[in-house]
Design a binder for these strands. Structure first.
Length: 369
DNA sequence: AATCCGGGGAA
DNA sequence: TTCCCAGGATT
């Protein structure tokens, strides 16, 4: 009995595989990282695509693999240049981990991206998803690659109502995929699921009438496709009030600061700034004290020039922006002084790009008399 | 298990 | 506004 049941199930699974893969081979988008199967380039694309849309990634990918075409090129590159190439893409630890991992590949694996699951999965920044994606696409290994797309698609196909926000739930989908994945075409199977999630089986209103695996879908059969997947909500982000200042001297040089090597926006550059407290003192007074005590700088500080709001996933910055002229600098100041031209060589978070844009616009059209 | 870590586009 | 996107590390 069990054998017969299993045979029927295997037959259904085989049909699902064939329908999915033939659809993918027919309908897949033309994307830069699909031009070849270079494991390094597949890897770069997968890291960029973490929590980031395809359209956003394309121009970054093209520039990145041109600038750093091989494992060795990236391993030997200056971190400042690598961060600059990532500027604006977000989650900057991704690229710092990638460069660290690529150095290890150069050292320990002779520059060859290791095809072994344990070896590759042990590299920095390579989690369960990236491991499965890179090894299945580049080396044709039948390993699950479960991302948000796959959980959405499979929750509907199999009518799985577990909360996909819970870490443990991912393993349920990995087990399901191990039973479903094609041993002949694991690359097309994994990419097919993700492509389906991106093009057809979308979050809000899936195009079930166009779906190549509609006849295999429990949610479609039950009319529950809009209720799946189940995902609990996250709490709202907190708000931080900040003050930042674009400081220049008589020569027009600008003062910038490198952020710490850990935590938010690690190793990126910024304009001098502090978190401000409400009440007691004005923002200007807090900024003056900060510059003198923490930066060893005395300066003439302008009136408030405007407020930059920047929203992170878990945090909102409200940054009051000031301009200032430096009067005196102690030799212990940790700030770096650069020309406006040199400024472009440094990687800034988008919030501080907004601040610099304010300064440039103010310089281009000086306040009316 | 919960939190941290960016930024942008779609609904 | 809200969601969530080809997630991973840290605590």
């Amino acid at each position: 009995m069990n054998v017969l049941e299993d045979k029927l199930k295997q037959k259904d699974i085989q049909r699902f595989r064939d329908d999915l893969i033939s659809w993918f081979e027919r309908e897949q988008r033309v994307l830069p990282w699909r031009e070849d199967q270079d494991p390094y380039k597949v890897w770069v694309s997968e890291v960029m695509l973490q929590q980031t849309r395809v359209e956003t990634v394309i121009p970054y990918f093209l520039r990145f693999v041109e600038q750093f075409p091989t494992v060795e090129a990236l391993a030997d590159a200056d971190e400042e240049k690598v961060l600059k190439a990532w500027e604006g893409l977000g989650y900057y630890s991704r690229v710092r981990n990638l460069q660290s991992a690529v150095k290890e590949v150069k050292q320990e694996y002779g520059g060859i991206v290791p095809p072994d699951e344990k070896d590759f999965g042990g590299l920095k920044g390579v989690g369960p998803y990236t491991k499965g994606a890179v090894l299945s696409i580049a080396y044709n290994k039948p390993i699950p690659a479960v991302d948000g797309n796959v959980m959405r698609v499979m929750s509907r196909i199999l009518s799985i109502w577990d909360d996909i926000a819970k870490p443990k739930t991912r393993t349920i989908f990995e087990d399901a995929i191990r039973a479903f994945i094609s041993k002949e075409k694991p690359s097309e199977f994994n990419q097919g699921l993700m492509e389906l999630g991106a093009l057809i089986c979308t979050p809000k209103s899936p195009s079930c009438l166009l779906c190549p695996v509609q006849k295999h879908c429990s949610a479609f059969e039950e009319g529950t496709e809009r209720e799946l997947p189940v995902k609990s909500k996250k709490k709202k982000p907190g708000i931080k009030t900040m003050a930042a200042i674009v400081l220049t001297d008589e020569d027009g040089q600008v003062y910038i600061h490198k952020r710490p090597s850990k935590g938010l926006l690690a190793n990126l550059w910024e304009f001098p700034n502090l978190e401000t407290q409400k009440g007691i003192k004005t923002e200007r007074e807090q900024l003056t004290a900060f510059l003198e005590n923490e930066c060893g700088i005395q300066a003439d500080i302008s009136d408030l020039q405007g407020v930059v709001e920047h929203v992170f996933t878990h945090l909102v910055w409200n940054i009051s922006v000031f301009f200032g002229k430096v009067k005196q600098v102690s030799d212990t100041s940790e700030l770096k002084k650069v020309t406006k031209e040199e400024l472009e060589q440094f990687a800034f978070p988008v919030s501080h790009q907004k601040i610099w844009k304010m300064a440039e616009e103010a310089a281009a059209s000086p306040a009316a008399p």
